[in-house]
Amino acid sequence: MNENNPSVHLITVSTDEAGQRIDNFLRTHLKGVPKSMIYRIVRKGEVRINKKRVRPEYKLQNYDEVRIPPVRRSDDEQAPVSTRLNKVTALNDTVLYEDGCLLILNKPAGTAVHGGSGLSFGVIEGLRALRPDTRFLELVHRLDRDTSGVLLVAKKRSALRALHEQLRAEEMQKDYLALVRSQWQSHVKTVVTPLLKNNLASGERIMRVNSEGKPSETRFKVEERFTLATLVRASPVTGRTHQIRVHAQYAGHPIAFDDRYGDSAFDRQLKGCGLNRLFLHAAKLRFDHPGSGETLRIEAPLDAPLRQCLLYLRAHCK
């Protein structure tokens, strides 16, 4: 197997995806591929988990590395990503750091990290289209589509493994900025609640606090106060889907303009700030470089809408 084949995808199983069968996982990632073909490539050993063959009923574990081979989709498959699309070419302007091992972006809000679920492309597909000579590009972690900020991409398989090990050991520090409703109470420094994934009939995925869910922990610190909102720093210890958003809601302080877990009345109060997107931004990332061992601290500046919102609050809501 040629792991450097750009058509081969290596996907690391997130903590939220763990527990599902490999065949169901592949159906999510291989849109348009018949179920019979998915079973065929698993049985033939073309799909590998941690370099090993598995059965279709294999249940994924945290941080399993799934090798997905190139597969021919149905006739209605999306055309290859065009480098002439504005959103694709704009990715070149979001690079915060790059060397032979890593590529780090300030991901724009509204752009998914990967295609699927009706999306023609995501950040990783756009990067592969822009850099056809780069033989290996894989996401180290993920951000929600509406969340902006630091996104880490590996350019070497060895780098991907080393960074995943840091994630497993909880040695990678992630700090987000979020604008939340009302006055965050300073004594609430940590939210620890189990989260359970719920799939609605519409296909939408919603996370709920539930005793049967997976352990989840987020640390919070007040950064700035306004009369009707608080800017907080949120540092997730675990990596569940929508974790910060649900934990903020659970604490009684939903994030501004969160269309799943937010408060429309709070959003209306912020109408004058001109914001119309989720105020959640991956502001800082600290980790050890997989090659040199040097500690890297990467910061992603807020985009114009978030900066403008804060300027408005400082002028009108102090």
Rank of each mutant, 00 (worst) to 15 (best):
residue 254 P to A: 06
residue 296 L to E: 01
residue 286 R to S: 14
residue 269 Q to T: 00
residue 256 A to N: 08
residue 186 S to C: 07
residue 259 D to H: 13
residue 210 N to T: 03
residue 189 K to I: 03
residue 185 Q to D: 15
residue 265 A to L: 15
residue 289 H to E: 12
residue 187 H to R: 14
residue 306 L to K: 03
residue 196 L to M: 14
residue 260 R to D: 12
residue 266 F to M: 08
residue 266 F to A: 08
residue 309 C to P: 10
residue 197 K to N: 13
residue 315 A to E: 13
residue 282 A to V: 05
residue 310 L to Y: 10
residue 310 L to Q: 00
residue 219 R to S: 07
residue 182 S to C: 13
residue 313 L to G: 00
residue 215 P to K: 14
residue 292 S to A: 00
residue 303 D to V: 10
residue 302 L to M: 11
residue 247 H to R: 10
residue 226 F to S: 09
residue 247 H to E: 11
residue 199 N to M: 06
residue 188 V to C: 11
residue 187 H to S: 10
residue 267 D to T: 03
residue 253 H to R: 02
residue 221 K to L: 05
residue 283 A to W: 04
residue 187 H to M: 07
residue 291 G to F: 07
residue 289 H to G: 05
residue 258 D to A: 09
residue 293 G to T: 09
residue 266 F to Y: 12
residue 216 S to R: 08
residue 247 H to M: 09
residue 226 F to M: 04
residue 219 R to P: 05
residue 241 T to A: 08
residue 229 A to N: 08
residue 239 G to I: 13
residue 279 F to M: 03
residue 290 P to M: 05
residue 274 G to I: 04
residue 234 A to C: 15
residue 275 L to M: 10
residue 267 D to M: 04
residue 205 R to M: 03
residue 248 A to P: 05
residue 288 D to P: 00
residue 184 W to T: 03
residue 239 G to R: 05
residue 231 L to K: 07
residue 299 E to N: 11
residue 204 E to G: 07
residue 204 E to K: 15
residue 219 R to V: 05
residue 211 S to G: 03
residue 279 F to P: 04
residue 235 S to D: 08
residue 252 G to T: 13
residue 209 V to H: 11
residue 246 V to W: 06
residue 193 T to A: 15
residue 236 P to M: 12
residue 224 E to W: 03
residue 251 A to V: 10
residue 303 D to R: 00
residue 299 E to A: 14
residue 244 I to M: 09
residue 224 E to F: 02
residue 184 W to Y: 03
residue 246 V to M: 14
residue 312 Y to W: 15
residue 301 P to C: 07
residue 227 T to Y: 04
residue 270 L to T: 02
residue 260 R to G: 10
residue 311 L to W: 02
residue 229 A to I: 10
residue 258 D to F: 11
residue 220 F to R: 09
residue 251 A to R: 09
residue 290 P to K: 07
residue 294 E to P: 00
residue 191 V to S: 10
residue 188 V to M: 14
residue 281 H to W: 06
residue 266 F to N: 08
residue 266 F to K: 14
residue 267 D to V: 01
residue 296 L to G: 01
residue 224 E to S: 02
residue 298 I to V: 15
residue 292 S to N: 00
residue 312 Y to C: 01
residue 217 E to Y: 04
residue 205 R to K: 15
residue 204 E to N: 10
residue 189 K to R: 13
residue 281 H to M: 07
residue 304 A to S: 11
residue 315 A to L: 06
residue 227 T to A: 15
residue 198 N to D: 08
residue 245 R to C: 03
residue 314 R to W: 01
residue 307 R to A: 11
residue 245 R to I: 12
residue 258 D to Q: 09
residue 276 N to P: 04
residue 251 A to M: 06
residue 251 A to K: 11
residue 297 R to K: 07
residue 307 R to V: 13
residue 228 L to T: 05
residue 260 R to W: 03
residue 299 E to G: 10
residue 264 S to A: 14
residue 200 L to M: 15
residue 288 D to C: 07
residue 232 V to K: 05
residue 293 G to F: 11
residue 283 A to R: 13
residue 212 E to M: 00
residue 254 P to L: 01
residue 240 R to C: 04
residue 311 L to T: 07
residue 233 R to V: 13
residue 264 S to K: 14
residue 277 R to C: 09
residue 234 A to Y: 02
